[in-house]
Amino acid sequence: MRPNLPILFIFITVVIDAMGIGLIFPVMPTLIQEVSDGTLADAAIWGGVLSAAFALMQFLFGPIIGNLSDRYGRRPVLLVSLMVMAVDYVVMAVAGSIWLLLAGRIVGGITAATHSTASAYMADISKPEEKARNFGLIGAAFGVGFVLGPVLGGLLAEFGSRAPFWAAACLTGANALLGWIVLRETVTDKIRRPFSWKRANPLGALRAVTHLPGLAALLAVYFFYQIATAVYPSIWAYFTTERLGWSPGMIGVSLAAYGLGFAIVQGLLVAPSIRIFGNRGTVTFGLLIEFASLLFLGVVTSGLLVLAAVPVSALGALGMPALQAIMSRRVPDDAQGELQGVLTSLTSLATILAPLMMTQTFAYFTKPAAPVYAPGAPFILSACLLGIGLLLFSRVRKKL
């Protein structure tokens, strides 16, 4: 079996995970209205509930899925999750009630926690000097899915509100078949370890991993980065409509442009950056670029400047693969799945908290009685949070 075929499978798996939300996002308002007989405002409220349920399940089950892969292997966990995900999309495609949609999003959040196992598989097959580059490929896959999801979802919506779900089911099922054919197991008896509920619950897993020297601060940096950058999906549509007067089409173009830049940076520029700056320098450079980009969006008033800044802003994506590589090197081979599960849980926790923080901040500074009119206030808040992460990283011991 060609060694690059498993990498291709992992790449496609992450693409499909990233596409999952974007693919169905364009039709969710219509679909929710169909099954609930409510108004668009009611649909928005339910949409928030569905998103929170999805993120909460990822938070709770990320460490469980990661620990299961450390015990039973990456291959069965990935394949079973993909098959369940395909069935879940079919259920949502035929759902006739809001409660069935909610159940679908709960199951979808559990099965989408495969990101941790995919990352652990990539760590298993990567040499130490290859880890940052290969984690960059996972980031690139996320960027590709982020671009393709809304585009395909919008096109498929022309065939009805259920069409994107059928397409997602077919894509996921086909990828499961590919994995069945090409994926080899990487967990051997040498690194296999018993499943432990103490490590598998989100807080227990976090406590277990932070016992390793220096990892607690690095996990905090990762969390601050995730919650700060979650500002984009949380308020981008509202911010660009209010501040820049963009249409939905223009908002979609801007998201696609950023996703493309993200994919190019993580797919092509991570390895050269590591060679030039090293892991530590690459993390610092990426965090500084992201910090400056958030401050820029907090005060900008020109849509042309926002679009022109996309290539520079995308360079902020350099930092995370290098940070993941640093953490992966500090964790034993038999705990790679656990580490990636914790990272998935931290990302999901950020996804739960950020929309509440950012939308409330946006509403407060754009309402008629606001003390200062500042649609970019959520980006300023995010810059402050990222600044804390940058400060924490600067205090981690130099040899990384």
Rank of each mutant, 00 (worst) to 15 (best):
I7E: 01
F11Y: 07
T13E: 04
V15Q: 02
I24R: 07
M28K: 10
A41L: 15
D42F: 12
A43W: 13
G48H: 03
L50Y: 05
L56H: 00
F61Q: 02
P63H: 07
G66N: 12
R71F: 10
R74F: 02
R75M: 12
P76S: 03
V77L: 05
S81N: 12
V84W: 01
V87L: 11
V90E: 01
A95W: 12
L102R: 06
A103Q: 10
G104M: 11
R105G: 07
T114E: 04
T117A: 07
S119W: 04
M122C: 04
K127T: 15
E129T: 07
E129I: 07
E130W: 14
R133N: 01
R133M: 01
A140E: 04
V144C: 01
G153S: 06
G154H: 12
L156H: 03
G160D: 10
R162F: 15
A163W: 15
W166C: 15
W166M: 06
A167E: 04
A168S: 02
C170L: 13
L171R: 05
L177M: 05
G179P: 05
V187P: 00
I191C: 01
R193Q: 11
A200P: 09
G204A: 05
A205L: 11
L212W: 04
F224K: 00
Q226H: 01
I227A: 00
V253T: 13
A257Q: 15
G261S: 00
G267S: 09
A271H: 11
I276D: 15
G281M: 06
G281I: 06
V283I: 14
G286P: 05
I289E: 03
S293V: 09
L294A: 06
F296Y: 11
F296C: 11
G303Q: 05
S313Y: 10
L315Y: 10
L315Q: 12
L318A: 11
L323M: 15
A325P: 03
R330Y: 11
D333Y: 12
G337M: 14
E338A: 03
Q340C: 13
L343N: 14
T344N: 06
T347E: 03
T347V: 08
I352W: 08
A363D: 03
F365W: 13
K367T: 01
A370H: 08
A370R: 03
P378H: 01
F379K: 01
C384I: 09
L386D: 00
R397V: 15
